[in-house]
Every structure is written in C-alpha cells, then in structure tokens.
Simulated scan of single mutants.
Amino acid sequence: MSKLLIRPEKGKQGRVIQVTPQSAGWTYVGFDLYRLQPGDTVSAETGEREVCLVFVTGRGTIHAAGTDLGSLGERMSPFEGKPWAVYAPQSLDWSVTAETDLELAVCSAPGLGSGLAARVINPGDIGQETRGKGTNMRHVTNILPEGQPADSLLVVEVITPGGHTSSYPPHKHDQDNLPAESYLEEIYYHRLNPPQGFAFQRVYTDDRSLDEAMAVEDGDVVLVPKGYHPCAACHGYDLYYLNVMAGPKRTWKFHNAAEHEWLMKA
C-alpha cells in the first residue's frame, strides 16, 4: 500500500485516524478523525496549534475555553447539506460530547499568536460554489477559506459526482514562490456514496520522483506532501473529500500541469 494512503481500522470507535506533522514527515498540517457514539466525549488542548473542528456527520455539544457553544451539527451524511464547524485558536481547551453517532474531524496547523477568538462556523456562514464544466464539474463548500480569519488553516469540502474528475486539470502548490505559487501541505479525507464504492487519486511530480496512484475507499485519507493530486470518481459513486491545507503563508496559489493547461480553455 502507498505510504501516502492511510486507512482507518474497520469497526473501531474513538480516534480512527491520526496524522501529525511528525508522522507525515512534514511541517504544518495535522488531522484527527473521531467516530463517537452518543454520550462519548473527546477533549484536547490546542497548545501551540489552531484547530478547525468539522462536524462531518452527526450532532454534539461543544465547550471551548470553558464556554458552552451549544449543540452543533445536523446532517447525517456528508453528501447532505453544509457542515457545522468551530474554529479554536492556540492555547485553548475544547471538548465535544456526541448526541448522535458523530464523525468529527480535527484539522490543525501552527498558531501564530494573532489573538483570534474561538467561533462557531454555522452553515449560513459557509459559501458554496460549483467549479468546472461537463465531467469536470464539482461542488465546493468553503468552511475556512482564505477570506475568513485564521492563522494557517484552509479547510474546504468538495463533492465530485460519479463519473467526474476533480482537483483537475492536475495542479500543485509545493513551491514558496508567491505570487505565482504557494507552498501548502494537504490532506484529503475521502467518503463514498454509496459507501462500498471506490475512487482514484494520483499524487505525482513533474520528474516522477513521486508518482503514486491509489484506489481510495470510504474513510481513507491521502497525504499530499507535494506534486499534482487529481481525483476521479467512478460511475455510480459520488466522492466527498475534506481538504486541509497549511503552509508558511495562508494563501492558495496553484500551478497547473503545463501539458494539461489546454483543458482550462476547452
């Protein structure tokens, strides 16, 4: 199996995925995924990092810095509507108690001491857009985009209909070369509908020193340390993914693969 592909342990509850900068061999992005049953609680301190808690599915009550932020979450599938989320800056404790079966993503990156406050990101705050045309059309939900306050994190959801491609034409963001391109590490957390399906993702560089093609299944995580990273959803199975990005500068400037640039005008 590719070293870039991480699979959860089937049937496990609690934390089923953990990616740290140390385990990924990079600097910025961290990602934990929790699967909780009603009454289960998860808690942590942000320390020197900021986090974005995304209620992928289910509902739970959340406390941050001793403040009750209420009962959040409403969708029971990531393919139905917008998520609820919470932004929590560094040096803050938080806890979530599940009210229903709950899938909670904890996205993290370095905090920069900017003094931001914890806040709830409700579905009404979240913008959506459709990108691409034809079989390259996909639906994007901007949970924590560049225009919203954070120190390092960028968080977005994408739904790619069955038979379509996304993160395509292939693009990369692995050079700290602004304004042309920004350096951003990235994680893809994948879900399939129906869940028995599979999709494909390729991660590769121009010189092919990195070139991995992976069949991704429901619940898999793919690491993108560098290079291009297109996805393809198979016929009959819609593909959801949660993207987490961070780097030295909080901006998304990407470079398209030159040989496929013509697709932007086709």
Rank of each mutant, 00 (worst) to 15 (best):
E9I: 12
Q13G: 13
G14R: 13
V16L: 10
V16Q: 08
I17A: 00
S23N: 02
T27V: 11
V29S: 04
F31L: 10
R35F: 15
Q37D: 14
P38C: 00
T41H: 00
T41S: 04
V42Y: 00
T46C: 09
T46M: 11
E50P: 13
V51S: 08
I62A: 09
H63Y: 11
A65Q: 14
M76R: 15
M76I: 10
F79Q: 10
E80K: 15
G81L: 08
P83M: 03
V96T: 02
A98S: 08
A98T: 00
L102V: 01
E103L: 12
E103Y: 01
S108Y: 03
G111L: 00
G111H: 04
G115S: 03
A117Y: 13
V120P: 01
I121F: 11
D125M: 13
E129M: 03
K133W: 14
H139E: 12
V140Q: 05
T141D: 11
I143K: 05
L144T: 06
G147F: 07
P149M: 05
A150D: 06
S152C: 14
E157I: 00
I159F: 07
G163R: 02
S167T: 11
P169V: 10
H173G: 06
D174F: 04
N177R: 11
A180S: 05
S182N: 07
L184A: 08
I187Y: 08
I187S: 00
P194C: 09
Y204D: 09
D206M: 07
D207R: 03
D207L: 06
G219K: 03
V224L: 06
P225A: 07
G227F: 11
Y228N: 02
C231V: 15
C231M: 14
D238W: 11
L242D: 06
V244A: 06
M245L: 14
A246V: 02
G247I: 03
G247Q: 02
P248Y: 05
K253T: 04
K253E: 15
F254I: 08
H260Q: 11
W262Q: 11
W262F: 07
K265M: 07
